[in-house]
Simulated assay, not measured.
Amino acid sequence: MSSFPTWYFDESQIVGIDFEDIAQVETFDCKQTSSAPEIEQVLVKRLGISSGHTIIDLGAGTGTFAIQAALKGASVHAIDISRSMLAYAQQKARKMGATTIKFHRDGFLTYKHNDDLADFVITKAALHILPDFWKMVALMRVSSMLKPNGILYLRDVIFSFPISQYEASIDEWIEHSSKPEGEGWTVKDYQIHMREEHSTFAWIIEGMLTRAGFEITQANYLTPTAAEYVCIKTA
């Protein structure tokens, strides 16, 4: 952070999980059922990722998507702010024979892309660590890393329920999504997310994407508390 202003947002101060604790990283990997290898294989195929493509995976976590993209022959830059998360991902990649991944300890606001412009930027369940002001900064930075007509895929906790129903909607989300300890994300995990992280409304994200120079070609509201977007860089 030394090259950034003192008022710059510090992405390393994330909440809820100690991502430098390898035991918690392993637990996180088990909890991320939405990022199982077979699910990421489907996403790689759906986006048309193949040999010759350059991919930036922002918030790569334990590396499951990056590995599946690399196994298709893509050149992947896997970026995460956690040293332990990256070490765990590198170990997984070696075991899987995914040799075309470069790992970078950085975040949305600090990663400097010094390679060819990317064909795809992927970010899943990570942008919510940033307050809305910094989400906008991050999306402008993402745009600068992409080729013209490059693709941004974004999936996250994003709220599409009516604002007037926020209390009932969040209570229902926590009740139906939480798992017992050891089986997935718990009630406490979801409560921490709501108190201390920065998930926002679909209409806010969509406005940011447009202002950052993207055309939203697909907007899928998976549930009232989750959404995914496929966007093309137009500006």
Rank of each mutant, 00 (worst) to 15 (best):
L139V: 11
G73C: 00
G207H: 02
L109H: 10
D29P: 07
W134K: 14
L139H: 12
S34W: 13
D80G: 02
G213W: 03
M194Y: 15
G63T: 01
M136N: 14
H104K: 10
N220V: 09
W185M: 12
P148K: 12
D171I: 11
I17A: 10
T64N: 05
A66N: 15
T54M: 10
G107Q: 09
A78M: 02
F133R: 15
M208Y: 08
R83N: 14
V25N: 07
A60F: 05
V142Y: 05
P148A: 12
A23H: 13
M96N: 12
F103A: 14
Q41K: 07
D10E: 12
K147W: 00
T100A: 06
K102D: 12
V121M: 12
F65V: 09
Q32V: 06
D106Q: 13
F120C: 04
Y88W: 04
L127R: 08
M136Y: 12
G61I: 01
S144G: 10
P224M: 05
K95I: 08
E181G: 08
K31T: 07
M140P: 11
R141A: 00
L71T: 03
D115Y: 14
H77L: 10
T54S: 06
S12N: 12
D132C: 03
F65M: 15
V76Q: 09
P180H: 03
K45C: 12
I79K: 08
S164C: 15
I101E: 04
D57I: 07
K135M: 04
S177Y: 00
T6F: 01
D21P: 07
M145Y: 03
E183Y: 13
K233P: 05
K92I: 01
H53E: 15
T110C: 12
G182W: 06
L154S: 07
L154T: 01
R141M: 03
K72I: 04
S84A: 14
R155G: 01
H128Q: 01
I204G: 01
L130P: 00
K92L: 02
Y190D: 01
G61A: 01
L146A: 06
S143D: 15
F65D: 10
G16A: 02
G213L: 04
G59Y: 01
M85S: 15
I192W: 04
D171N: 11
Q13R: 11
D119Q: 02
M136W: 13
N220Q: 07
S178M: 00
A70G: 02
Y8A: 15
I158A: 06
A118R: 10
A69Q: 04
I122T: 03
T33N: 15
F4D: 14
K179Q: 09
H104A: 13
I56G: 06
R105C: 05
D132S: 07
I129C: 09
E38M: 07
Q191W: 08
F214C: 14
H198W: 04
E26N: 12
E172H: 14
V76P: 10
G182I: 05
D106K: 12
M85D: 15
Y111W: 08
H128A: 04
S144K: 14
F120N: 11
A219P: 05
